[in-house]
Design a binder for these strands. Sequence first.
RNA 1: CGGGGUGUAGCUUAGCUUGGUAGAGCGCCUGGUUUGGGACCAGGAGGUCGCAGGUUCAAAUCCUGUCACCCCGACCA
Length: 512
Amino acid sequence: MAKPDLPKSAINPRREEDFPEWYQQVVRAGEMAEPSDVRGCMVIKPWGYGVWENMQRALDVMFKATGHRNAYFPLFIPLSYMQKEAEHVEGFAKECAVVTHHRLELNAEGKMVPASPLSEPLVVRPTSETIIGASYAKWVQSYRDLPILINQWANVVRWEMRPRLFLRTTEFLWQEGHTVHESEAEARAETRQMLDVYETFARDFLAVPVYTGEKSESERFPGAVQTLCIEAMVQDRKAIQAGTSHFLGQNFSRSSGIQFQTRDGQQAFGWTTSWGASTRLVGTVIMMHGDDDGLILPPRIAPTHIVIIPVMPKPETRDAVLTAANDLAAKLRAINWHGTPLEIHVDQRDLGGGIKSWEWIKKGVPLRVELGPRDLESGQVAVTRRDEGQKTKRFLPASEFVSQVVETLEAIQQNLYARALTFRATHTRRIDTREEFYDFFTPKNSAKPEIHGGFALAHWNGSREVEEKVKADLKVTIRCIPFDDPLHAPEAGHCVITGEPSKRRVLWAKSY
RNA sequence: CGGGGUGUAGCUUAGCUUGGUAGAGCGCCUGGUUUGGGACCAGGAGGUCGCAGGUUCAAAUCCUGUCACCCCGACCA
C-alpha cells in the first residue's frame, strides 16, 4: 500500500477502539473461520480447524489418561427422552432444533416440501445426557459394571439468538464426557477431577489462566446438582466460561433408569456426571492473546510452530536459498516437542517477503524465520517471535537457532501465560462497597462503552434476588464461587449489595 | 419475539434528498520490473444495485411488500 496514512497495525479497528469488531477482523484475517449462508453457523477454515484439532488431541490424551474412552451416540434425540428430566428440558426447550419430517416431495408449484411427518419429533441434540442415559440404563446391571467412563466428540445444536464466530454459534463442536458411578463421593470426585483437567489444559496448552469454582444456582446446568466451571478473563475484561463439569447426582439416572444392584444386593440409582468444552475455546484463545496485528497462537496448539520465509531477491541465488530453507526445515522437523515433531512450513510462494510475513503474523505463527542469500554466507537466520513487538528480528547462527528452538517455544508459551496472568491481576479487584461495585462496572461513555470493569471479588448474601438485581442493573453475574484455596479462602464480610453477612467472596463479571 | 439501522463487484464503499448508460479504493488475473516488514508500471476480468411488485417514456434512486444481516433487550458453551 502506498497510502501515506498506512495503518500501523494489521487489524483495524484496534482492540481499544472496538473490541467486538476487532475480534471479527482477527478471525477473518487469520483465516480461522467465516460466517456461512446458514444463519448462526460458521465455516471453520483449515487454520482454525487445525487449532481445534490440536486442542482435541491434547484433551483426548488427558481424558484417556484419566481412564475414559471415546464412543459416539446419535445426533437425534426422541422428544420423549428430552422430557424425562423436567429441569433439563425446561432449560433447553427454547433453543432446540426439532426434526418433524423425513422426506421431501415436489408440490404443485414445483417446490420441495417436507412430506412425511415423524410419529415422534426428533430433537437435534443440544447436549446428550438423555440419549446417553438411555444406553447406560441398558449397560448397567451391577456395581461391577461401574464406573462407566465415556467421552464423545460431537457437534451439537443450540438455536441461539446472537451468533458470534466460535463464541456462540448455532452449531458447534465439542466433547462431552458422561460417567456413571457407584457412589456419590466417586461421582463428585470425577466432577472435580475433570474440572482440574480443564484447568490444567487451559494453563499448559492455551496459556490461559482460569478461575475455578462452582456456579450459583441460577447459572447451574439444567438438571445438575452442582456445576463447576473454569472462567477466564479476555482482553475486554469480560469473563468467558471455558469449560464446565457437572455433578448430576441421581437426577438423570432416575429419569433414564440407570439402576444397578449394589454390593449388598440392593437396587440403587447410579451417580452421574457430565463435562464439556467446545470450539469456544478457540475464541477464548483469540481474545486472550491476540494483539492489534492479529492472532497470537500459543505454540502448544499452533498448527504450524515455525514458518520459514526464503528471501529470493536474485534468480541466481534462488536455488541455494530454497535448498537451505528446506534443509533447515528438515532439521527442525527432526525435533520432537512434547512427543510430536515440530510443525514447520516453508513459504515458497512467489510473493513479496512483506506480504508473506504479514500473513503469518495475522495467523499468529509463534516463530518466523527469514533466510536469504546474505544469511547463507554468514550462516545466520533472522528470527522473529510473534509474542514480541513488530520489529524484534534477531539474527543468530542457524545452528544456535535449531539447538535453542525448543527453549524458545517454551519461552513464548510461558510469556503468553505470564502476560495473561498479569492482565487478569491488573483488572481483578476486591470490592467492598456498593458504590465502588457500581462504579467499577459502569462505563464512562454509555453511548459507546469503552473497555472497562473486570473481575470483582465481592461478598454476596447468597440470594437469587441480589444476582437478579445486579444483572438487571449492570449486566454483571456471578461467574463462580471460587473453591477454597489459599488465595480465595472463606472470609467473613458483608454482602456488597445488601450489607447482610457473607461467608465468602464470589467472582463477579460481565460475561460472554 | 419487541425497538432501531443497513442491504450497490470477493471486501470497503460513492451515487439516492432533486429518476436519465453504475463509479472508486483494496483484492483478483496477465506481462514486466521487484522481493531482508504490507512494492511499482501497464493491461484485464468481475455488479440481475437483497428479492418481488407498483409508479414512470425511463428506477440503484420514488412507493408497497418481503427477505437477509447488524446493533440494543430477554436466552446461552
